[in-house]
Design a protein around this nucleic acid. Structure first.
Lengths: 283, 283
DNA sequence: GTCGATTACGTATTACGTAACAATT
DNA sequence: AATTGTTACGTAATACGTAATCGAC
């Protein structure tokens, strides 16, 4: 039986060529390495090296052994990775969301129901990534702007609604309007946060010829909103946390794409397990 | 890094269920095993067992780890096997033969040319097995009753000839004949050695309704030949080593299938390497 | 009472680093 | 002289077995 540390050393010798170099890389002494390789040859009953007085090199058999050593180490590392990953999953409730608002809303619900577990939330811009994540077990739950059709495979339930408005200075050309459409924003220069899930794509796609000032830091975002006259987005949900600044007006946008009903979705086989979550959902 | 001995122990725990049983199987003490499994959990940072006071069992994570342990051990064992096999091959000249006579004839030739190497001879009944063995490197050389057509891939050279006779008592109905064919042996009860390569198949196939008394021990074979009146086979080559017994007569068999020219065959890329062998061949 | 697992403890193994040496470059 | 690998030797880490303990069947 060949111990792992020797297999690791063999692979390193194949990689770095000389014992002294390997000793440096692995933070052990040359003599220790020299002895390990002798022990390895001894255990296999085979010569793996061409040795001259102060030169050592893997021979053909040694190269073969080193290639196999790589295979063993790969399996070894995969074992550790897989076990630790499985453990992490068993202590973590992971869910993904297409938008920040329902993601935030979900946190207190899950934290209470899964006390002692890590709750991991993941914001995504695309439905596909979320559904794939649900399928492969990355997510236990996902939040979309629509239910999933396949009722045999998935269980969907409505969650919160969210409606978009544009925040403009009082003297802005749109400030007097009771409501607008995305088209009305054509040509505007707009401040936009770029970590807002599907909103980002919808806004960029549906507003003709707009230019954007992007910002990923939330606090910096707030600063700029307050300090400039630029239009920015707000929703009825986000309004509670981050009220529109004084001196500006929020004008609702009427397009159906930005007035959404969220849905909370899980695999149907886990619907029972998550019953408590679903009954805790505000709608 | 998890040492191999611990991975082996984990796999054994999954296999045998209890620590005491495993300790017995692996010839170590229970405490040693108990500590190993604790160390394993410690290194992975993960609980692998459900423990009650005097019962221990792998949990789901432990089962996963054990399955991976099997994979690691398989790779580990394959490494050892492959290296030792490659080493053995490098110290062994292996060849296969379709018949005993040329196999024996080859031994002194190879022993002299490959001094210090092990010469390994293998008797086979079928061409296919030999050619496959030549292709995959199991054999460096094979001996057949015909050359191999593909001159780009193989190099073939005639070796010895061998001719079959039947040995019968002087009062046997065929004893007076100068020669016979296999058909003439129809219905006979014949002594036959069953480790004679292709001869075995040819004789069994070409003689109608014969019954056979098989024997695989050579010395026992000789005994029976001497002690009974049963016909048996002999060839001009084997006759030198094991002369036909007194009071019996060897009658040549004329069928072309049993008067063969052997050929020594190697891969063409190795023909140069084996030039000394081929020039030492008697024909 | 037996069996299975764990803990405690002393021992034996062994892998290690330092030092010294030999041989190349 | 600097670099590389090996051998010698004492040390430190560690894996081991024995004995003791604790519960469960």
């Amino acid at each position: 039986m060949i111990e792992t540390y020797i297999i690791e050393q063999l692979a390193a010798v194949a990689k770095y060529g000389t014992l002294s170099r390997v000793a440096e890389e692995l933070h052990i002494s040359q003599p220790a390495l020299s002895r390990s390789m002798q022990k390895l040859e001894d255990e296999l009953g085979v010569k793996l090296f061409d040795r001259s007085k102060n030169r050592i090199a893997l021979n053909e058999l040694g190269e073969l052994a080193a290639r196999h050593a790589e295979v063993v180490l790969t399996a070894h590392n995969e074992m550790i990775r897989a076990v630790q990953e499985a453990d992490r999953r068993s202590h973590t409730f992971s869910y993904g969301s297409i938008a920040p608002a329902p993601m935030w809303e979900m946190i207190p619900i899950l934290s209470q129901l899964y006390m002692g577990m890590t709750v991991s939330a993941d914001l995504q811009e695309s439905d596909d990534v979320l559904v794939r994540g649900l399928d492969d077990g990355t997510y236990s739950l996902i939040i979309l702007t629509h239910p999933l059709d396949d009722n045999a495979a998935y269980f969907s339930k409505p969650f919160i609604k969210e409606n978009l408005s544009i925040v403009v200075p009082k003297n802005h050309r749109l400030a007097e309007r009771a409501s607008i459409t995305l088209k009305d924003l054509a040509g505007e220069k707009i401040l936009i946060h770029n970590k807002i899930g599907f909103w980002y794509g919808v806004c960029k796609e549906k507003i003709p010829n707009a230019t954007y000032l992007e910002q990923s830091e939330l606090s910096a975002m707030q600063e700029i909103v307050n300090a400039t006259e630029l239009p920015s987005f707000i929703t009825d949900v986000s309004n509670k946390k981050f009220p529109a600044p004084k001196g500006k007006i929020a004008v609702p946008i009427t397009d159906k794409e930005v007035n959404v009903q969220f849905y909370c979705v899980c695999k149907s086989e886990r619907a029972k397990e998550f019953a408590a979550i679903f009954s805790a959902l505000k709608m």
